[in-house]
Amino acid sequence: MTTQQIALVKSTWSEMIVLEQDPGIYFYDKLFSIDPSLKALFRIDMTEQARKFIEMITYVTFKLDRFDEVLQDAIDLGKRHHQYNVPTGAYKTVLVALIATLKENLHDEWNDDAESAWKLAYGKLTHAMITGNKD
């Protein structure tokens, strides 16, 4: 990822986490509307799950320029997803829900450059997670 792409991901995420509506709840609502079968994978309160999702995305987003520092965490997250029986195909569905969440909440701040940057960032994260998911 270029420095500009990383800055774009960081700036758009900074806008997301200060929205009045909880972006984590919005994301999971979107995810389950796309694939309701994924809801069965979650055994904890969705408010808690949404909080964890926001924390994880925030953590990775602000370390994109030092991704090697979070690489093992991403692999470990993939291992946990494997234990939870998360199908590898769900990562694509999550991407669709994440992009929709960003686009629908950021309005004028969202554009093709932002979408491309987010897809690259998500690709880095999921590559590491899928590596862990296969272990």
Rank of each mutant, 00 (worst) to 15 (best):
F32D: 12
Y59S: 03
D29G: 13
F53Q: 08
T61Y: 03
L64K: 05
G132M: 09
K92M: 12
E20W: 00
F62P: 04
R66H: 11
D22E: 06
S33K: 14
L102A: 13
E55H: 09
R80Q: 08
D22R: 04
G89F: 10
G78K: 09
I25C: 05
K10T: 06
L31V: 05
V70E: 06
V60D: 08
F32R: 10
I34M: 10
D45P: 10
F32K: 09
P23I: 03
G24D: 08
K119L: 08
D76K: 11
F53S: 02
E115H: 07
D35F: 08
A40W: 03
K119Q: 15
G24Q: 08
S116Q: 13
I54Y: 02
N85C: 04
M129C: 05
L77A: 15
Y28V: 06
A50M: 05
H82W: 03
Q72F: 01
I99R: 07
W13T: 09
D35L: 04
K103G: 09
G132V: 02
Y84P: 04
V96P: 01
I34L: 15
D45K: 11
V70C: 04
H107Q: 10
G89D: 15
V60T: 10
N85Y: 02
T101I: 02
Y84K: 09
Q83F: 00
V60L: 08
D35R: 12
K124D: 11
L98N: 12
N111D: 15
D113W: 00
Y26C: 07
A117T: 08
M16S: 05
K103M: 11
G89C: 11
D29K: 15
Y28F: 14
L120T: 15
K39M: 13
L64W: 02
N111L: 01
S14L: 06
M129P: 07
K79W: 01
T47F: 06
A114G: 09
D65A: 12
H107R: 06
G78P: 04
R66Q: 14
Y84R: 09
I75E: 14
E69W: 00
A117S: 12
V60A: 13
L106W: 05
F62A: 05
Q72I: 05
S11R: 07
S14V: 00
E20I: 00
K63L: 01
K79V: 13
